[in-house]
């Protein structure tokens, strides 16, 4: 039995509103960095795309208020998951933008920062500990360093990458896996 603990002391609605500006600024920075407004070499980059991405980020960045319940329509669902959509749009914009080392580091740091920020200021989630934050940033940094390492590429590089990704996904999956029989739902005693 869990003991009763007062969770927080302020109203979540007011708390969310008070943190809207930092959220918007963080989302704006993430979208603009991912869109790379300085670059004009590709279609997906440049000032117009950056302006569009910034506008979208300004609207989508604040953590969703849980009193807004999702409805069945697709645009309502997208609005409900707008934080996720913003992060995915940033990843896609970064993927089509040309590779610049300083910008990749910035995007990786901002993306992780934004995800942690949304987790922290979501009304239902307690902020992650410092060790968790450090581990996440360390993992990103390690992969960035590995990606920047001067290794010779071969035709089998992608296959090796796929295998590596599959191994990593398997490891994460095993961590999350829990035998299904153990949490088979039992009858709830609703009153």
């Amino acid at each position: 039995m869990t003991s009763t603990t007062a969770v927080g002391s302020t109203a979540p609605g007011a708390r969310l509103r008070s943190w809207q500006l930092p959220s918007r600024c963080l989302g704006l920075a993430l979208a603009v960095a991912a869109a790379d407004p300085v670059d004009r070499s590709t279609v997906a980059s440049g000032l117009p795309v950056a302006v569009l991405a910034a506008g979208f980020a300004w609207w989508a960045a604040p953590a969703v208020d849980r009193t807004e319940r999702p409805r069945g329509r697709l645009h309502h669902q997208l609005a409900w998951h707008r934080n996720t959509v913003l992060a995915v749009v940033a990843v896609l914009l970064a993927a089509v933008a040309p590779h610049r080392p300083w910008l990749t580091v910035t995007v990786a740091a901002l993306l992780l920062g934004y995800l942690l920020h949304v987790d922290t200021y979501s009304p239902l989630h307690r902020p992650p500990g410092r060790a968790v934050v450090a581990a996440a940033y360390a993992a990103s940094a390690l992969v960035l360093l590995a990606a920047a390492a001067p290794t010779g590429s071969s035709s089998a590089a992608r296959l090796l990458a796929v295998l590596g990704v599959a191994a990593a996904a398997g490891a994460v999956g095993l961590t999350l896996y829990e035998r299904r029989g153990e949490d088979a739902p039992e009858q709830d005693g609703d009153s």
């Binding site: 996440a136 960035l144 990704v165």
Partner: peptide
Amino acid sequence: LLTGHAWLFALAAGPAVLLAV
């Protein structure tokens, strides 16, 4: 995997660690 930019794996590493821990 599609673009061949290995650094994009870094964007996946952070969320994967957050999930695992």
